[in-house]
Amino acid sequence: MQLELTLNGKTERREIAPHHTLLDVLRDDFNLKGTKGYCHSGVCGACTVLLDGKPISACIMLASQTQGKSITTVEGLAEGENLHPVQRAFVENFGLQCGYCTPGMLLLTVALLEENPEPSKEEIVDYLGGNICRCTGYANILKSVQAAAALVKEASL
């Protein structure tokens, strides 16, 4: 079937298999390898992308379901060489170790700060709690999200 969607701000059309998940199609048809697969059950959050600005698990959604919608992957965050403030905050605060969970953590943080620009520690933990970091680097991820909130606020002033 013909899939048409807005992917990282650009209109894209691609012939896809109707039984492929959004994760399969992003990685294999669009060659966007930033979105990771791990649990393939919607549990771990490695495949988090934004659907119309809201985080979802790409492994438990058919690509066909995104017809006419807008998807943002981690590749859509930076503008050329300029990192997104959330990416900068993660780099500056060592918010990643092996990096496998990082695309999901970044996108979740972008969505959190869109909904709630000044989240408390508890609100951050509640929002990001479903995404798993197997390096257990949670303390620095939390620090990074707090720093990101400050950077995003600064950028919007």
Binding site: G42, L51, I56, S57, I60, G129, G130
Partner: peptide, 9 residues
């Protein structure tokens, strides 16, 4: 219900 990613979809 589950986590925020599931609740959005």
């Amino acid at each position: 219900v589950a986590g925020v990613r599931v609740r959005n979809a």
